[in-house]
Structure formats: structure tokens, C-alpha cells
Design a protein around this nucleic acid. Structure first.
Lengths: 152, 152
DNA sequence: CAACGTATGTCAGAATGCTGACATGAGTCA
DNA sequence: TGACTCATGTCAGCATTCTGACATACGTTG
């Protein structure tokens, strides 16, 4: 298990570290959500709907960082299992606003508490300053990656 | 778009922001690697081998944050296409040390340059201090998520 | 030495997410 | 009005990754 060697910029790469942190977060979330019979995307969808009722399939997809096709499959399962409802007819255009049912809200409560505890554990050793630094830095990274600063 | 926060407030959640940043990074990497006919995991594997020659399948899997089964599938493809080599017999135990071929090294060069440019873009608006802050903070998050501080 | 726990490589099947494609509805512009 | 562009919902097929399982090899412990 020696990792000596050749320059290893994996050890100093912020990109690699970001991926590692994200992977650790996802694994930790999966661990606490599995006993509740819920996947991370599953949870993300319900959480989005709790905070922004009436989101469409495409909006949910963007919020959960998956394609709208993937979200569509998930929504059909959630609808079949009674966690969300969508009108049979679109009130306007083709957009179907989705809402949580009482069952969905109940199911989300436990999951949300579990996820909050994971996030709290992640931030346990960070000061308030470090947390706000992290917030600002991550936002800058996202902004730059999206190319929002290329004017021409 | 009102966000009444009963659960995890997505607008202020560092977990959500971490996922967003990681997603943006992955998308940006996919964009530059696609013209080279290479996926992110594909690239990760080659980069790991370049920096730590002789890694085993399981070690590569841990380094790329996938299961060893997934990495095994990838390695078989890379071996078939002549990018890596593994001995037919394990020198010791069952561990098969993997190495890049000349072709694999060539293929990696372009990909590595492309990925470096993505990482540079991600960090473009950050000062040196912010970068070292990010490094330390991400490491703390990873450490805490892995539960390395729960002694009992 | 024998038993046990752990780590590895690998095969098979299932779950998950993606790309491609199509039809539909809304907005824009001439 | 008609043509064009764009976003949406959805179906189908494919790719990727995962979980489950098994045999094998090493280290430790009795």
C-alpha cells in the first residue's frame, strides 16, 4: 500500500478531493437512508417537493442533478406508491406540477432527520467561519465551472 | 420559488452545495473527455495508474470511488483495448498488479491536459488562501464523514 | 497444524441513470 | 397567420454501476 512515487498530484488536487468528499457524503447518506428504504435521488426528490411544492418533472430533475428522463421514471414510481400526486391534465402547457401526499410528507420526515444528522457530522469539526468560507468557495467553483464568467 | 425550511434548507445546505459542485465538475469533465472517447472513471483509472504504477484492481476501485466489481469490468475493457496490462499469474496471493502500456500513457496525456484545464477553470476566481482553505475544509469533511473521530 | 477472519478477483443478475427520439405546447418574429 | 425555436413529458434501448455470491490466498490465533 505504498503511495510514494511520482509526483502524485492526486494528493493535492482539489478536484479529486471534491470528488472524494462528495463520494463520502453520498455513501453516508445511503447508509442512513437504506434502513428507510429510500435512495439518495428518491430522498432528494421528496425534499425538493417539500420546499418547493408544485415543481415540474424537469425542474425536479435539475434540482436533483439527474436527467428529466431519470426523474420521470422515479416520479412514476413515487406516484404509484402514493408519495406524490400529479394532475392528469396539465393546467397550462405540458407541465405537470407535482405535490407531496401526506404519506410522502411522513416518509420524508424521518429521512430528512437522518440526512440532517449526516450533514451535521460532516461539519462537526468546522468553525462558523470555515462553514461560510466553504459556502462561498463552493459557489465560486460552481459559478466558474458553468462558465458564467465568459462575457464574449 | 419560496423555500420555507422545515427540513434541510437546500439554499443554505453545504451538503447540497457539495453535491452541486461535484455534479458541475463531473459534467465539465465529461464534456472535455467525450471528444477523446473517454469516461470519467476511465480517465480516473489511467491517472491512478500513471501516478501509482502496479496498483491492484481493488486499490484502483477505492481510488476511483467505485466498487471493485465495477473496476474489474473497466480493467478488462482497458486490457482488451491495450491500454493496460496485467500478469496472467499473480506474483503473490491473488493480487494482479496493473500497469499502463505505452498506448495507455499516450491516451492519458491528452485527457490529463484536458482535465487539468477544467480544474484550473474551477479555481479561476479563488485566491491561494481560498484554495488552501478549501483543501483543509474538504479534508475535514471527509475525515468526519468517515467517522474517524468516534473512538468507541 | 487447523480454524478463523479478512482481502482479493471474478461471474451473474438487478438496479439505476443516460442518450436518442418523438409529439406536444408556448413564445417569438416576420 | 405561419414558421421557427425552445422546453416539456414520455417511451425505448443502452451503458454504467451496484449487490450478491463464490472460490481462493494470506495472516493470525488457538
Amino acid at each position: 500500500m505504498s503511495q510514494e512515487g511520482v509526483g502524485v498530484n492526486l494528493e493535492t488536487s482539489l478536484g479529486y478531493l471534491l470528488k472524494e468528499a462528495s463520494s463520502a457524503l453520498r455513501t453516508a447518506m445511503e447508509e442512513v437512508l437504506r434502513p428507510l428504504g429510500m435512495s439518495v435521488t428518491h430522498y432528494s426528490c421528496l425534499e425538493l417537493l417539500a420546499q418547493r411544492p408544485g415543481l415540474s418533472n424537469s425542474e425536479l430533475a435539475r434540482g436533483a442533478f439527474v436527467t428529466r428522463q431519470t426523474m420521470n421514471v422515479l416520479l412514476q414510481a413515487l406516484e404509484r406508491d402514493g408519495y406524490v400526486t400529479r394532475p392528469a391534465e396539465a393546467p397550462v402547457g405540458k407541465v405537470l406540477p407535482t405535490r407531496l401526499t401526506a404519506s410522502g410528507r411522513r416518509s420524508l420526515q424521518k429521512a430528512s432527520a437522518a440526512v440532517r444528522s449526516v450533514e451535521a457530522r460532516m461539519l462537526a469539526d468546522l468553525t462558523a467561519t470555515e462553514r461560510s468560507d466553504a459556502f462561498r468557495i463552493l459557489q465560486s467553483m460552481i459559478h466558474s465551472l458553468h462558465g458564467d464568467n465568459e462575457p464574449a
